[in-house]
């Protein structure tokens, strides 16, 4: 069993979804950690959930990155612990400098809230080991600022070092202009840091972790993390 910390910022709204999946679907030990706390209470893994921290004022994640809990999150990342940022959590990780690049307004200017195909780039990471290369997942997205931007050198390095784990594709796994919901450069949907222990993604795996919700394709992300730590799956759905 792993001990997880789910950070709650003012404006987080996917914290309970993540908590539910970890606690009730995967039988893990989970704590909510308020953003004003300064300790992760010995957690092995940290989740920065989706939402609209600080109302998305200034830029998404720009204010949350200065929350009192963030030094502890950075410390955990430095120690090689698993740090997962989902949607707004991804934006916060980028603003905090734990991941390269930044997420800006969708090219269409529309808030996209739908379930879309997402392609797994490779399974050789602690977040994707339960998937197959090129596997197409059905995952929900819900964002207005998911357009991933970085300079060309950074983008090249991300692919070279296999830091891109998820890309937007069509249901056949092809990356076409129509399959990119937000204009992300090179269709990027989720990236890790160079060390491979910090992962940020715009899709919501926690909203697709039970069949009753229409898709359990996202559960593999969490079970991959557990597998990477040698944790047996007691009650996986």
């Amino acid at each position: 069993m792993m001990r997880w910390a789910v950070i709650q910022f003012p404006g987080s709204n996917c914290d309970q979804d993540v908590f539910h999946v970890l606690k009730n679907v995967l039988a893990q030990e989970v704590d909510y950690i308020w953003h004003k706390d300064s300790s992760l209470k010995g957690a092995d893994a940290v989740v920065l959930p989706g939402g609209f921290s600080y109302g998305d004022y200034l830029r998404c994640g720009a204010i949350a990155r200065f929350s009192p809990i963030m030094p502890a999150v950075k410390e955990a990342a430095g120690q090689g612990k698993t740090v997962l940022g989902i949607c707004n959590g991804f934006q916060i990780l980028c603003e905090a400098g734990l991941l390269p690049g930044v997420l800006v307004r969708n090219t269409s200017l529309h808030f996209r809230c739908e379930t879309i195909p997402v392609r797994v780039e490779h399974p050789s990471s602690r977040f994707t080991s339960e998937y197959l290369t090129g596997q197409v997942l059905q995952l929900p997205i819900a964002h207005g600022e998911g357009h991933y931007v970085a300079d060309e050198a950074t983008l090249d390095a991300l692919f070279l070092h296999k830091q891109v784990l998820f890309t937007y594709s069509d249901s056949q796994g092809r990356t076409t202009p129509g399959s990119n919901p937000n204009g992300s450069q090179r269709h990027i949907a989720g990236i890790t840091n160079r060390a491979g222990n910090v992962f940020g993604l715009m899709p919501h795996p926690e909203r697709a972790s039970e069949k009753i919700l229409g898709s359990s394709d996202g559960l593999g992300l969490f079970t991959s993390i557990l597998a990477s730590q040698g944790v047996p799956l007691a009650q996986a759905a």
Partner: peptide, 8 residues
Amino acid sequence: DLLSNPVI
């Protein structure tokens, strides 16, 4: 640090 993001 806060008011702008030098990446963009």
